[in-house]
Amino acid sequence: MKVGVIVFPGSNCDRDMFHVLTDVFNLKAQYFWHEKGLPKDLDAIVLPGGFSYGDRLRAGVIAAHSPVIKDVKKMAEKGTPVLGVCNGFQVLVESGLLPGVLLKNTSLNFMCQWTNLIVENNSTPFTNKLKLHQKIPIPIANGEGRYYVDESTLKQLKKKNQIVFRYEETVNGSLDKIAGVCNEDGNVVGMMPHPERATEPEINPIDHKPSSLIFESLIQKIGVKN
């Protein structure tokens, strides 16, 4: 089972994600530079966090036009699980794979802190081992993480069960406290918080098990460990 980690110029959580996939969860992972195409045998794709293109113009917007995104779109259409974290989430909304936009936080500052997520949809490839409304202690680290959609899209998101995670408390002004969403099919998930920073007890001062379930869900979805 192989997971592709997409690397854009300015990605900076790629190595963290790779470490968690391989060293913590024993998955096979491979980096893919943004200019390259993706092999067809990938079982899942992760777009890690960072500052692709230095957040120039708008977070994620330039990366969304990278050659690799064409392949990500094709594979997403075929049902391959795709996870975008932080800047990866921003790239997914900018490329149209997920609805909505991510605006500057209401504090107008970059925010790095631990917070709690609430699971709102546990039928995606990244949440199937979590319980509905389960709490996940996890860190956020972003300047443009305030999720926003118009009212009619919000209704659609609710109707089609596309809200995957909410913050337990108002953190950055996100609409409806939304922290993560998925596409209609549920295989493409984007989230602002960083699960790769929360799966190891050494660096997670609260509880590393809930975040680990995000990766264990993926393993459940794409098959056995190798």
């Binding site: 900076n12 959580c13 190595r15 963290d16 470490h19 968690v20 966090g49 500052n109 970059f110 925010m111 790095c112 802190q113 860190p139 680290a141 960083h194 790769e196 920073r197 190891e200 050494e202 660096i203």
Partner: peptide, 12 residues
Amino acid sequence: GQYDHEVGIRTV
């Protein structure tokens, strides 16, 4: 709080 102090997943 304005500094990303978790990136690199080394911060114990």
